[in-house]
Design a protein around this nucleic acid. Sequence first.
DNA 1: AATCGATTGAAACGATTGTTTGAACGCCTT
DNA 2: AAGGCGTTCAAACAATCGTTTCAATCGATT
Lengths: 237, 237
Amino acid sequence: MSSRTPIHSDPHLADSREEDRDPRVRILSAAGQEFAEHGYEVATVRDICAAAGVNVAAVNYYFGDKRRLYIESVKHAHEERLRQVPQPEWAVGTPATEKLHQFIDTMLERMLGAGQPPWQVRLMMREVLQPTEACRELVEDYIRPHFAMLVAILDELTAGMLSQAELRRVGMSIVGQCFVYRAAGDVVGMLVPRDEIESLHTPKPLAEHITRYALAALGVAAPLVLPLVRVTKDVIA
Amino acid sequence: MSSRTPIHSDPHLADSREEDRDPRVRILSAAGQEFAEHGYEVATVRDICAAAGVNVAAVNYYFGDKRRLYIESVKHAHEERLRQVPQPEWAVGTPATEKLHQFIDTMLERMLGAGQPPWQVRLMMREVLQPTEACRELVEDYIRPHFAMLVAILDELTAGMLSQAELRRVGMSIVGQCFVYRAAGDVVGMLVPRDEIESLHTPKPLAEHITRYALAALGVAAPLVLPLVRVTKDVIA
DNA sequence: AATCGATTGAAACGATTGTTTGAACGCCTT
DNA sequence: AAGGCGTTCAAACAATCGTTTCAATCGATT
């Protein structure tokens, strides 16, 4: 009696205008933005309903209680995000180095994006930083396949000379370098001069840096600092 | 009339037992733990006072209101943390590679530590992830000098062949690799097998990996994967 | 012993929270 | 037109929040 499935939510009419008028998705969208901005505890159902333009009782009517609304909003944001930025597919024969570069670039674009990153990313970031019930599903559906793709690229790049464990460790190093700019972006902005942020710490230049950093560490490309001493020795020898 | 400085807080008697009996520091300690665990909004003054063993009115008496208590508790945690883990000092002539290794190892030990990391780190991490008023002070007093030390080590390591901007970018890459294990530790634990976590993703092995990764990227040490092709070319030449 | 200021205590304040209620509304079928 | 059903609404619910009040208590000075 508390939460019943409304009839008009049957998805036979998927018109965009119609979806915007559906109170259920309006609440989901507003809830996601509020939860992303303030977190679960701080966000209030009253603010959510006000943003969605519905009565406070609508939350209990459609979702039962606040907790289930949160879980549904995380799922909704996740699915919407998957639809927005699909995984890039490479033609067979694409060099692994190019795949790695594009992969890192895509990850950074998703995290930092142009201007304010969309609230879906903020919501997912909250789950990563402080997991709740919705976390495991998020990892299995979104993060794990993404990470597996990175490991596969690294495996191809090193021609199978590193174990899966080592590949995962290298992958985590790459993810970490992107992650810190998203999670600790404010502090980064305080440690690095403003003009330097805009010139070197935006997605494109960062992707080049992290890619080159990884390729050099793996011995696939030249290191950031040319090893003059060793070159000299080789020349002499 | 709302919050006046208590007389007995005069620090002429710094006995440890005496400090534990000082309601002011008891509240600061309890508040730090509560704020670290639940965040500013979720943590309640009632729980803090219950943990500190004082009356709810004590918060207003000693600190005025909850907001000022929070700022004071962040400062207190920060100062206590500085006292606990002082910066290591190296003898003149210590190789830069060894400095870098020890620096990364110390940073990881602080972040991950043995077992549960102390609540002070959690509190500081909250400020990094979502800065409040107490953030700027934290960055200036704690994070910026620490980061400057890393940049100095990298500068020495590369013998001045990289610009300060490039050094900062490399430094951020190193910090990011440590940071991700602290901030997204739960997700890392879901992506990597349990035994692999214990064998490869603990402070000591991680410090070796990240150090070697950095040294290889900078061209100071051999890459993770030996570049057979180029070696062969060199030998042929 | 008496007095004064610092500290503590229990209780209550007003505000806000998530949730529930029951009547009113809109739309469709009969 | 009438009724039924899904939906919306304003209002109120109990619980909890930060904060305040004021009397009781403690300790040192007079």
